Amino acid sequence: NLRWTSEAKTKLKNIPFFARSQAKARIEQLARQAEQDIVTPELVEQARLEFG
């Protein structure tokens, strides 16, 4: 299971509600691909840039 830093959680809250669950799934996918067990603000930002 993935842990989220408080900064990453804050960044996730800045994503519009309607896109948040999809973004969260993508962020967690990116973390797993990078073999990380902690979601960082950088991963959230990477996903945000993908979504535009």
Rank of each mutant, 00 (worst) to 15 (best):
N1E: 12
N1R: 13
N1W: 10
N1T: 13
N1C: 10
N1V: 12
N1Y: 12
L2G: 02
L2V: 07
R3P: 07
W4Y: 02
W4D: 00
T5D: 04
T5H: 04
T5K: 03
S6G: 06
S6I: 11
E7I: 06
A8H: 00
A8N: 00
A8K: 01
K9I: 15
K9L: 15
K9N: 06
K9V: 14
T10R: 15
T10N: 13
K11L: 15
K11W: 10
L12I: 05
I15C: 04
P16T: 03
P16H: 06
P16R: 04
P16F: 07
F17Q: 11
F17N: 09
F18V: 07
F18A: 08
A19V: 14
R20V: 03
R20D: 02
R20N: 02
S21D: 10
S21F: 08
S21T: 10
S21H: 11
Q22K: 14
Q22D: 07
Q22T: 11
A23E: 03
A23S: 04
A23Q: 05
A23F: 13
K24W: 04
K24T: 05
K24G: 02
A25W: 09
A25F: 10
R26C: 08
R26V: 07
R26E: 04
I27T: 06
E28Q: 04
E28Y: 03
E28A: 04
Q29G: 06
Q29K: 08
Q29M: 11
Q29W: 10
Q29I: 08
L30W: 09
L30C: 03
L30Y: 09
A31N: 01
A31M: 03
R32I: 10
Q33G: 06
Q33A: 11
Q33R: 11
Q36I: 14
Q36V: 14
Q36R: 11
Q36G: 04
Q36K: 11
I38N: 04
I38S: 05
V39W: 00
T40S: 05
T40I: 03
T40A: 02
P41N: 05
P41L: 11
E42G: 05
E42M: 06
E42P: 03
L43W: 04
L43S: 02
L43P: 00
V44F: 07
V44G: 00
V44P: 00
E45Y: 06
E45S: 05
E45W: 06
Q46L: 13
Q46E: 07
A47F: 15
L49H: 08
L49S: 08
L49V: 09
L49P: 04
E50K: 08
E50Y: 10
E50C: 09
F51K: 05
F51A: 06
F51I: 11
G52A: 14
G52I: 15
G52C: 15
G52L: 15
G52Y: 14
